[in-house]
Amino acid sequence: MSNKFLPLVIGAAMGVAATTAAGATTLEDVKAKGFIQCGVSQGLPGFSNPDAQGNWTGIDVDYCRAMAAAVFGDASAVKYTPLSAKERFTALQSGEVDVLSRNTTWTMSRDTQLGLNFAGVNYYDGQGFMVRKDLGVTSALELSGASVCTNTGTTTELNVADYFRANNMPYEIVAFEKADEVVAAYDAGRCDVYTTDASGLYAQRLKLTNPGDHMVLPEIISKEPLGPVVRQGDDEWFNIAKWTLNAMLNAEELGVTSENVDEMKSSDNPSIKRLLGVEGAFGEAIGLPNDWAYAIIKNVGNYEESFNANVGPDTPLGISRGVNALWNDGGFMYAPPVR
């Protein structure tokens, strides 16, 4: 093709495009630079939120740290890029981030049309509504004529349109670019209703002037499976992304925690032996050391530890496991076995 020699004419001008076009695999890139660039939200308590010192915490952040632990054996080898809902896919497509772990809903169009792959689901969510208690509303079906605040460029905006249309209720949508402004406008009384993923409602409620004056309505109007995303076309990196999540889930199922992982290495259970790399060469097959899962669990913990530390009942969010419990405990969380 003619554009093989044309870059020579232009030289350095096209350097950027040329390197992404013929670049190394993501794993090689990541190993070369020594850290994983992880796309996160601009601040959603429990999922990805920076503290005053700029340290990120949250269930989505733990996933990034787990990936870093798997690749480098060091959970701190991560750099975070806060992204708005609008920027997130472009940032991943263009290689600005290596993995997007930003409470992102897995939908067919995102999976098939954007050149992206979803690595699994780390939180089963659904869209809900929050209102002021003094409105006296007990069901979302009573919200006819309400004005609704939400984020622009999210599936939420589409779901709320579908829901109000399907129930033949007029409404006014007020869509902001950033979550902080949605909260401010709702707090000021511009809107009667604030809608986003239910987990987000619990998290954002903490930012309101009087969190106790607001309640989340019982209806969940959509399926929002949230999960990490990587670029399509790099199966090696996709495998690492999938199995990082699976390792955390399998560890919980097998009772391996960050506390007991060293003792568990001498366990007789073959499943645990395979997971922790005592038996077999499962790490090699995904281009990592054989103790990849051991590193994840040792440095970050299993799924239950991450959930309880960030969003669980003992945190300000106080979310119970619900559908996010393991499959053998009444939830949806099910990881294929390591064998």
Partner: peptide
């Protein structure tokens, strides 16, 4: 776009996010 007025950038941003046609 900062204050939810649906101008070209705001509407376009939503379309961009739904379709990915950056």
């Amino acid at each position: 776009v900062a204050i939810a007025y649906p101008d070209l950038v705001s509407m376009g941003g939503t379309v961009l996010n739904q379709t990915g046609q950056a």
